[in-house]
Nucleic acid binder design. Structure first.
Lengths: 237, 237
DNA sequence: ATTTTGCTATTCATCATACAATAATCTGTT
DNA sequence: AACAGATTATTGTATGATGAATAGCAAAAT
């Protein structure tokens, strides 16, 4: 269910599965930073795959900054500091093995830094097509029959908003936030019935963006985040 | 010169070189989104490497969302929308083939969204060790004998600031910004003599963060960005 | 005693080749 | 025209052989 976004690495290919396995092991601390992974033959034996598949997985993890291989040394887990936490796979692996609530706070901090500014940019820069996408996503939220549909539309709305900034970097960041959001939605859905009060707030945000009300859009985004924070606080109790 | 951060993918290994080659070709549009790459045998022949090495590079690019391979179909470049622009390698490849100035504007937009908030967080959350790192980086800027040293210390200062937020996500984002910054420094250095006026502004930011002056730190970060924007504007003339 | 040098074993790096899996395309039949 | 099956092009996986790098040790030189 959490694979809405197609940005996480495929688990269909063998090496993809292996990368997933090793990635989660690293995230969970089973292979801690500084530690050596078992050597190629041992690992490929343990996982029941060929050296080829293992090797390709290793290269993927290396390219994400997680590990580092050298002849005669082996393959070592690099310090967390150099992990690229903004990588969708790393994020997903990390979410799969860590306390979600703690992460949600960090995510909220990031959103608070990014989203009001993004809303302001979107208000200033959006094209007609992007405005239409926003309207459509909002309509999806209005018409949502259940919580799942509502969350999906919510994610689409955010995506459209980030795209409307006209800044690809910010759009990428938005996609990452959405990935994290959909995961935490899956989590909160288990803990709270139906937090759908967000609708009027989204409506205000939409209207102000479309009206190119830069400051107003920023404020509206801020209000939305405040609401999200309140929801999280409720769960914690 | 631009490899200060060790977060970009190694070019020492063969498959790393191949990934770099293909990555830049994709960024430059030589392989446009939707297009098929030459098949494995052709490509490995053209590049003069074995299928294994090519394959490992392909897997790396796949994991970054750039391409997608399927049997009997081939390997296709995915739409830009799903590229992970927050990946250090993609960023570097993109910077190598695109007009830098245009990118600097986008980067400034992102920084404007992120850095004031980060400064505020750092003011609130920094630990003694992180405070020391900030002081050290600032001292490096003061003592810098030339522009290169100054820029290096500047990057360290930003890194320390982002780390001091206590939010790993933000720290990762900071690392990315720093990578982009050091590249654009290399660029601006060719166009403008010595923009070292930033020192007093950095000093104010440092003092306010250390004094846990949340609002003041935010303001100071904002002032710094305003200065950076002025510098960019000067180059454009 | 300390430093230097050279050897060796271990591990990853690369290559070449074979075969399997997949799916688009063609081909013949109904 | 529609369907079923064979063909074929392409990536996916596996394996064995050889190469290159280097940590750790031992021997030699200082």
């Amino acid at each position: 269910m959490a694979d809405r976004g197609k940005r996480t690495y495929s688990r269909r290919s063998l090496h993809g599965k292996v990368a997933h396995t090793l990635g989660t092991r690293i995230m969970s601390g089973e292979y801690a930073p500084g530690a050596l992974l078992p050597n190629e033959d041992t690992l490929s034996g343990e996982l029941g795959v060929s050296r080829t598949a293992l090797r390709e997985a290793i290269k993927v993890l290396t390219s994400k900054g997680l590990i580092e291989s050298r002849p005669k040394i082996g393959t070592r887990v690099r310090p967390q500091r150099v992990w690229n936490l903004l990588d969708p796979d790393i994020l997903a692996w990390s979410l799969a093995t860590r306390p979600v609530l703690e992460f949600i706070d960090k995510l909220l901090e990031l959103r608070e830094m990014v989203e009001p500014g993004a809303a302001a940019l979107a208000a200033r820069n959006h094209t007609p097509a992007q405005a239409e996408a926003l309207r459509l996503a909002f309509a999806g939220m209005v018409a949502a029959p259940d919580l799942d549909a509502w969350n999906a539309a919510d994610v689409r709305f955010h995506q459209a908003l980030m795209a409307a900034t006209g800044n690809e970097l910010i759009a990428s960041l938005g996609a990452l936030i959405d990935l994290a959001l959909s995961t935490s939605f899956d989590f909160t859905a288990k803990h709270i019935p139906a937090p759908r009060q967000g609708l009027p707030l989204h409506k205000i945000l939409l209207e102000r963006v479309l009206a190119r009300d830069v400051d107003g859009a920023q404020e509206a985004a801020h209000a939305l985040l405040k609401d999200a924070k309140a929801t999280v606080a409720e769960i914690k109790i």
